[in-house]
Design a protein around this nucleic acid. Structure first.
Length: 731
DNA sequence: AGCACGCCGACT
DNA sequence: GTCGGCGTGCTC
């Protein structure tokens, strides 16, 4: 039989043909000779072929970890996102899987009176020769057992939480030490395991016993369940058929409660839930809600946890016990055995799109899988993607009733300072009422530009084509594109004057301004690159507890979780997004404003804008997502942008600017009958010392277009190309 | 990605 | 003469 296989770790979109005598399962791993070396390959199909092909050397696992739906999803993604199929499979079967497997030597007949032995024990007792002889004579066979070793994450990495509602836990508990642990965890809403051991003096062995009893759970992220929990909308919950649903508006927890019944009934039916969130920092919040309202096992999966943590989750996905799998985009690669429901939080978030190889869009992958399995998928979001309003039937859009929002817009064209007088007044009022203030700023650092007051020179990164920003606390100039930095110095390299000064503002400068205006306020700045997610979380908890008055940050502060203490949310410069050369930037701005605004319940929102006539800002007053999207869809239809076509951005990176231009021009001319915008220099022309060009293709025949791209790359050399299909923003 | 093949420079 | 630099091309 001839099989089509994808080769592991190879950056090729092609598949290859190999033959094998026995029948193989879809998605199983096999060992093949690939270009004179051993390679792992994934079986993706059975084909009719009379080609003379190589023979598959051996089966690696003896069966497949993946369902046909998983295999279909990967094949589709490889085509859809122009990604190497083998690399996508590598994400579904991570290499750590093998570290928890064990090979056994098993007797086939009773003749020798042997017991099954671990391979290494057999070898040390009988030696290699005996094994060879026995194998040849057919006395024994090798059998690989996966997941026989249990992943044991280090205690200091773990957090403990109550796994059951308090009353149930107290009912099940028997021993005094169990009550101690339950009380401690209930009062603290979970704790790091080493702290728990220290505080209660109870050993890890006893804690593990409690875990086995189902009283407590170990997770690798803290859970956080008590940030502004609020009213119940679940009576309004739609009855999910096997279809896709949109639950829009409201905060994360209000939307969560709408689908709570669906989550419950999925688990009760013995099925699992895949619950995706954009960023790791949102995982603890969600696991907290799930444990509080569902009391079921939660498994987490994202790039920020250790290998053994990932292994635990991966093996439970494979086992098929009904669980809720909470993860980031990586979660879409979990081979969940008995998937019954997919939920995607804030599906419009660009984090679901991976720009590194292998490129993929986890939302579209999850949707594809759910639709092919015939299970429901829920997009839960303040706004949703613009495509959602194109794909999803109106009757399946569930809209959470708005609460009244008090929005005001300050026209910054009439202002001379970064922070308007009106905003300063509103902050002052809120601080006097002891209400929290959240400030969203688009940029990090002190100032995004450094300019010479005499000659007008702007400091540019020597390796990239972008302005360097100033970070005052570290006293450096830094390139946000490549990370290059140098000590700050006001000497202008062009005119020699000591006249370089910071222009514009970032979070650091705003912090300084507020410290001047509100010297007694407790002000905290959150910078995503300087803080890990548990620090950010810690700040949010402190904010809710009233220990922080003003929270300043970039996107990280716009998480969409309702904070009951917010009296004022201000967007200082978000409309700057509109100046980005990106077909999606208007939609993106609208989405960020809406999601941010959902954090506020009884407070006000102030938007500083120099674009107050912009449609985006005007629509925001009514939070009329549908109205805005429908207008936007009409524009996109006229201009043939997604979802009315597939947009393919092709980027070329080249050492030499003129050679690069020649190559990309030649590429575009060979695609003459496609609808192409470009080629042009990339908005960031020089990046890490390389010159970049790009062009956009709008196509209605994606497959055909990609074959032609393949041809062009083959002819022009495969180096330096990057392809992005329907990216949430241009690369 | 690997790995072989291939065509030029500095070495025993 | 040949060891080895890494440019190019191919992998069922």
């Amino acid at each position: 039989m001839v099989y089509e296989v994808a080769i592991s770790k190879v950056p090729l979109r092609k598949t290859f043909l190999y033959s094998f005598e026995d029948s193989l399962e879809l998605g199983e791993r096999v060992l093949v000779d690939f270009n004179n070396r051993n390679a792992i390959a994934y079986v993706v199909g059975l084909v009719d072929s009379e080609f003379d092909v190589k023979v598959i050397k051996e089966r690696i696992d003896g069966s497949s970890f993946l369902s046909v739906h998983d295999v279909e999803m990967i094949k589709w993604s490889s085509e859809q996102f122009y990604s190497p199929m083998g690399q996508l499979f590598d994400l579904m079967i991570p290499s750590f899987v093998d570290e928890y497997a064990e090979v056994f030597v098993e007797p086939i007949s009773d003749l020798l009176g042997l017991q099954p032995l671990k391979l290494k024990d057999f070898l040390s007792t009988y030696g290699e020769k005996t094994l060879d002889t026995y194998l040849k004579k057919g006395y024994v066979r090798l059998h690989k057992v996966t997941a026989i070793k249990t992943p044991r994450p280090r205690v200091k990495e773990l957090f403990a939480t109550l796994n059951l509602p308090l009353d149930k836990a107290l009912h099940i508990a028997k021993w005094p030490y169990e009550y101690d642990v339950i009380n401690y965890l209930f009062s603290k809403e979970g704790a790091k395991v080493d702290q728990l051991i220290e505080a209660t003096g109870i050993s890890i062995e006893l804690l593990r016993k409690m875990e086995r009893k189902g009283l407590i759970a170990f997770t690798s992220t803290p859970t956080l369940g008590n940030l502004g929990m609020e009213g119940n909308d679940s009576s309004l919950a739609p009855d999910l058929g096997n279809e896709e649903w949109l639950v829009v508006k409201g905060s994360v927890e209000r939307r969560f409660k709408v689908i709570l019944n669906a989550l419950k009934s999925t688990i009760e039916k013995g099925k699992s839930v895949l619950y995706l969130v954009p960023l790791w920092s949102q995982v603890p919040y969600l696991t907290g809600m799930i444990q509080r309202y569902l009391g079921v096992g939660v498994c987490i999966y994202h790039g920020g946890i250790s290998k053994s943590q990932k292994a635990l989750t991966w093996f439970s996905a494979l086992k098929g016990e009904p669980k809720v799998f909470v993860g980031t985009r990586l979660g879409v690669f979990l081979p969940i055995r008995n998937l019954g429901l997919v939920v995607i939080e804030s599906d419009e978030d660009e984090s679901y799109y991976q720009f590194d190889e292998p490129v993929y869009d986890a939302v579209r992958m999850a949707r594809r899988k759910a639709l092919s399995m015939g299970i429901p998928i829920v997009f839960s979001s303040a706004t949703g993607r613009i495509d959602d309003y194109f794909n999803v039937d109106r009757s399946r859009i569930f809209t959470i009733p708005d609460d009244s929002k008090n929005i005001s817009i300050v026209d910054m064209r009439k202002q001379t300072s970064f922070v308007s007088q009106k905003l300063l007044e509103r902050i002052k009022d809120n601080l006097e009422e002891d209400r929290g203030v959240v400030i969203a700023v688009r940029r990090k650092g002190y100032a995004p530009f450094i300019t010479c007051a005499i000659c007008g020179y702007t400091k540019i990164c020597p390796r990239c084509d972008v302005a360097m920003s100033f970070h005052k606390s570290a006293n450096i100039y830094k390139c946000h594109q490549c990370g290059y930095s140098e000590p700050a110095d006001d000497l202008c390299p062009r005119c020699g004057a000591r006249a370089l000064f910071p222009r514009g503002y970032g979070t650091e400068r705003i912090e300084k301004i507020f410290r001047y205006h509100f010297p007694s306020a407790r002000i905290v700045r959150i910078d995503s690159d300087e803080m890990n997610y548990s620090m950010i979380l810690h700040q949010l908890v402190e904010f809710e507890r009233g220990q922080i008055d003003i929270l300043i940050g970039t996107r990280v502060v716009l998480h969409g979780f309702r904070l009951s203490r917010i009296g004022l949310l201000a967007f200082l410069d978000l409309d700057g997004l509109l100046f980005q050369p990106d077909y999606n930037s208007r939609v993106h701005l609208f989405q960020q404003l809406c999601q941010g605004s959902e954090m506020v319940k009884n407070g006000e929102i102030v938007i500083q804008s120099s674009e107050i006539e912009s449609e985006v800002i005007q629509h925001l007053f009514t939070f009329d997502t549908e109205g805005f999207y429908l207008k936007e869809l009409k524009k996109r239809k006229d201009l043939d942008y997604p979802p009315f076509s597939d947009l393919v951005q092709t980027v070329l990176e080249s050492e030499d600017a003129s050679i690069g231009w020649e190559i990309i021009s030649s590429c575009v001319s060979s695609l003459s009958d496609e609808k192409i915008l470009g080629p042009v220099e990339h908005p960031v022309f020089k990046m890490k010392g390389k010159y970049r060009f790009h062009f956009l293709i709008k196509t209605n025949q994606l497959k055909k277009t990609m074959l032609r791209l393949d041809d062009a790359f083959m002819r022009l050399g495969k180096k330096g190309w990057r392809v992005f299909v329907n990216p949430p923003h241009l690369y």
